[in-house]
């Protein structure tokens, strides 16, 4: 691999950076490559991406990576062992369960929460925001007042109320978080829409005879996507923390599910004598949140819509 000849590499790069692509695919790839070039020039952003990729890999291969069961502990011989004990790298909790294994399996839950919230909240916010922004008038007023109502409550309190109403459980926690996190996306999408709706290129599409739906879906939404992606990525850390908070309060994942927030909650009883029980999941949450924040910052620079302005 290391002896890869230089010429084809140069050729591939030139192909990607070509100013006159020969096909749709080449144009699209070239554009993606430009984004990657800008993104990869930012060391911290790449570090953030690495953290998230690591999280994904750990989640996929949890079964292979975890040395012990995440739910069944050795109550008799391995309760509250400190980190570094042979066989238990990060120690064990009060049920004699290996904390490392629980963290590894817990990554699946974290990823599940994050992905599901993004998949539910972002499209809803995007649709509400772009429709409100493009339509204007009473539709805008109605949609944005609904958004305001959601924004008027503190996020965690609202999520708590929904989680309490829907009953405890990780799925309900996801739904509760999703319900509380779309309004800011709607706001962003609307703001972006307002700046593009009066542009000449949208006027030109109107002059083609395109329907309002077609304009919103195919022409306005792509312009809102990049700022939305950035915002969602930056929000991931908050979502993880909210999920952990719900878990901590007993409204998220239920024992013995190895959810990171719930792990902290159960570890708080021993925080003075067996600090690692609560600290280890805390560090995991911290690292993953940091990863998403770095990634989001990098994306903000890489996806800058002012692209091409030189």
């Amino acid at each position: 691999m290391s002896a890869l000849p230089a010429a084809p590499r140069q050729g591939r790069r030139a192909w990607l950076l070509s100013n006159s692509p020969a096909s749709r695919l080449q144009a699209r790839l070239g554009r993606a490559y430009m984004v990657w070039l800008r993104f990869s020039a930012n060391g911290l952003a790449v570090a953030g991406l690495a953290i998230i990729l690591l999280l994904v890999l750990v989640a996929i291969f949890a079964g292979l990576l975890a040395p012990h069961s995440p739910t069944l502990g050795d109550l008799a011989g391995a309760r509250l062992l400190p980190p570094g004990t042979p066989g238990y790298l990060l120690g064990t909790d009060d049920q004699g369960r290996d904390i490392l294994s629980r963290l590894i399996y817990g990554s699946r839950l974290t990823l599940f929460v994050v992905v599901l919230v993004a998949v539910i909240a972002a499209p809803v916010g995007l649709l509400v925001g772009t429709v409100a922004g493009y339509a204007g008038g009473w539709l805008d007023a109605v949609l944005m007042r609904i958004t305001d109502i959601f924004l008027a409550f503190p996020k965690l309190v609202l999520a708590l109320a929904f989680a309490a109403a829907l009953g405890p459980g990780i799925e309900n926690a996801v739904i509760a978080i999703a319900i509380t996190s779309w309004p800011p996306y709607a706001r962003i999408a609307r703001a972006e829409t307002l700046t593009v709706r009066n542009s000449d290129y949208i006027a030109a599409v109107r002059l083609v005879g395109a329907s309002p739906w077609r304009i919103v879906l195919r022409h306005v939404m792509p312009m809102c996507l990049s700022s939305l992606i950035v915002r969602v990525t930056l929000d991931m850390a908050g979502i993880i923390l909210t999920a952990a908070g719900l878990g901590f309060l007993g409204l998220g994942a239920q024992p013995p599910t190895p959810e990171w927030g719930a792990m902290i909650a159960s570890g708080r009883r021993f925080i003075l004598d067996q600090w690692w029980v609560a600290t280890m999941p805390g560090i995991a949450i911290f690292v993953v949140s940091l990863g998403f924040n770095l990634l989001g910052d990098g994306l903000r620079d890489a996806l800058d819509p002012k692209e091409g302005a030189q």
Partner: peptide, 14 residues
């Protein structure tokens, strides 16, 4: 049909 003044603003950037 119409052609606009600013060729930088009348083509969708994406």
């Amino acid at each position: 049909q119409m052609v606009f003044q600013d060729p930088y603003g009348s083509l969708h950037p994406r």
